[in-house]
Write a protein that binds this DNA or RNA. Structure first.
Lengths: 128, 128
DNA sequence: GTCGGCCTACTCGGATATCAGCTGTCCGAGTTGCCCTGG
DNA sequence: CCAGGGCAACTCGGACAGCTGATATCCGAGTAGGCCGAC
């Protein structure tokens, strides 16, 4: 159980785009160069972020990606879930009892973490 | 990013042993039968728990596993870390900066979850 | 000078290999309890 | 009847496959801007 490298790339890329604050698009190659990572792999990640509506993609010359218009309110949780999915971290495989005590406890702990991540927004992070 | 099935098995098995509360050992086969899971795979998990000191193993006839003497104070976090390891959930692959803001935030969120899991002990769970 | 069409270069996006870790299984080493025999 | 030794069955533990998902790459489809020529 570990956050994937893709999540790391996504968070750094989103924060980088927020810092640049540019209204103009920026290409995958440029984003990859700045962070010294594989452009092709980063492209795959940005595709996911685009499908989730966190960034907008533009094809053709002078194209690229830019943050969605409501970028200031995008939280860490939004980004993580866009990459990792929205399913629960813990599943009970033994019995289908929805009242499984263990499942309840695990879900509660997970929500504690999610609440912390939900409070961290790109906008809030830039102000400090 | 998901908790492994092994973690699910470990939590349920530990809770089952705590409920039985027996001072006598119980074999892997019996534990597996009660939960309808593969005995050989469950054996692998119990080996891990044994190495971490959460359960005691006894070989030979009438052998098996039983909870360690301080079982009441064993927390969910102890069990999870015994299976999943103690490494951080999140690593920053981009720069070795130990002050990486993202890393800090992720670690803080992780600790929120761990604190919740640390409070849940086998002893506390049985009393309610 | 201006408008329109074509072309080129650049972009994203999906299809395709590679690899690590989780899941699951099998078999061997070791230990313990039991039974049988001898005193 | 009691003690000791051997045996057998049961136990754990590590070595060995299979498979799903993450990592990484390449190439093709599509689009937008720019240039060139015609009017």
């Amino acid at each position: 159980m570990k956050y994937s490298k893709a999540t790391d790339y996504a968070l750094h890329t989103m924060l980088l785009m927020a810092k640049d604050g540019s209204e103009t698009s920026i290409s995958v190659v440029e984003l990859a160069d700045k962070q010294k990572v594989s452009p092709t792999y980063l492209s795959k990640i940005l595709t996911k972020l685009s499908k989730e509506g966190l960034v907008a993609s533009a094809s053709g010359a002078k194209g690229g990606y830019k943050l969605s218009s409501n970028w200031e309110s995008i939280s860490f949780l939004d980004i993580i879930q866009a990459i990792e999915g929205r399913q629960s971290l813990f599943d009970c495989y033994l019995h289908e009892d929805p009242n499984c005590t263990i499942k309840k406890i695990m879900t509660a702990a997970e929500e504690e973490m999610e609440n912390t991540l939900k409070k961290q927004t790109l906008g809030g992070l830039l102000k400090q």
